[in-house]
């Protein structure tokens, strides 16, 4: 591989580097500093060593939140990615319905996250909400404010409603970029719909689906606003995901040291899993 000759281009990256320094490096460094100290406010800190890391690693509360987080993330990925691809496949490729479909799909993405939480909270309330009323009218005992199962169902339904569109739009962009010649060749060979999907559409969508999986993985692993507004982490702790637990620890209890240690472990998990996803999905591409 030839080496890059024009190194001056690196200077163009400088403004971004400065911006990232202020919104990422400095806060991250501060969190690392907090994670090894104890504070009672007033910017006075006491050295605590690695005690907060040990606490978090042995904390059953953290383990439970992590398991809930992984369950949530892999459930929504397992639903949103295939559903998004199926919807993209059924969308028209040309004609007046293309913009109609695209705008309709984009609508959930435009709604602020706390509003999505509020909409679903009211929508699912058993006494006044449409979803709650209908389900209870059908004889299903549904109350997400006191049944953990119902809370999880509502949470996942809300995330699927909010974010499947993103997968649809990305998958659709991948689909429309496939030249007609590929389909004509497949037709001549007498390929079935499944064969076309498996050998033409899916490989062509691979890059955008990689982005979709990564974005949805990272976003859902960081999710805070929607479940906070919908259930507040309840009933009990049943929908307390990592970020909600972290905010309770940092701002509710003002335990900055343990919260900083937890943030770093949380960050490392996201970093490692994102890297593994990315590497696995791009590995075949490079061959």
């Amino acid at each position: 591989m030839n080496k890059t000759v024009n190194h001056k281009a690196w200077f163009l990256v400088l403004p971004v580097l400065v911006l990232v320094a202020f919104n990422a490096f400095i806060p991250l460094m501060t969190v690392v500093n907090y994670s090894v100290q104890e504070t009672f406010g007033d910017n006075t800190f006491f050295w605590a060593g690695l005690i907060w890391f040990e606490d978090v690693l042995h904390s059953e509360r953290f383990h439970a939140a992590l398991v809930r987080q992984l369950t949530f993330t892999f459930t929504i990925l397992a639903i949103e990615i295939p559903l998004g691809v199926v919807i993209a496949l059924t969308m028209p490729k040309r004609g007046i319905w293309v913009p109609v479909c695209l705008v309709t799909m984009a609508l959930p993405l435009l709604i602020p996250w706390n509003v999505v939480g509020a909409i679903w909270n009211i929508f699912a309330l058993p006494e006044i909400g449409l979803l709650g009323q209908v389900l209870n009218g059908l004889g299903i005992d549904y109350n997400f404010t006191r049944q953990p199962g119902a809370a999880w169902f509502t949470l996942i339904a809300m995330d699927v409603w909010h974010w499947t569109s993103l997968v649809v739009l990305l998958a659709y962009a991948g689909l429309v970029s496939i030249p007609d010649a590929f389909y004509q060749a497949a037709k001549i060979d007498g390929a079935s719909t499944w064969a076309i999907f498996r050998h033409i559409q899916l490989p062509k969508m691979k890059r955008v689906l990689t982005i979709a999986v990564l974005l949805r993985f990272m976003d859902s692993f960081n999710i805070y606003t929607e479940p906070f507004v919908l259930t507040g982490g309840g009933p009990g702790n049943s929908t307390t995901l990592l970020s909600i637990d972290l905010v309770k620890l940092a701002l509710g209890q003002f335990d900055l040291g343990p919260a900083a240690a937890m943030s770093l472990i949380y960050f490392l998990i996201i970093l490692a899993l994102s890297w593994i996803f990315y590497t696995l999905m791009m590995r075949d591409e490079e061959r």
Binding site: I26, T30, N33, Q37, F45, W47
Partner: peptide, 15 residues
């Protein structure tokens, strides 16, 4: 910069 709560070990880590 007192809010950043620098310590020598963490500074050494970043260095």
């Amino acid at each position: 910069l007192s809010w950043m709560a620098w310590t020598w070990p963490t500074a050494a880590f970043f260095l």
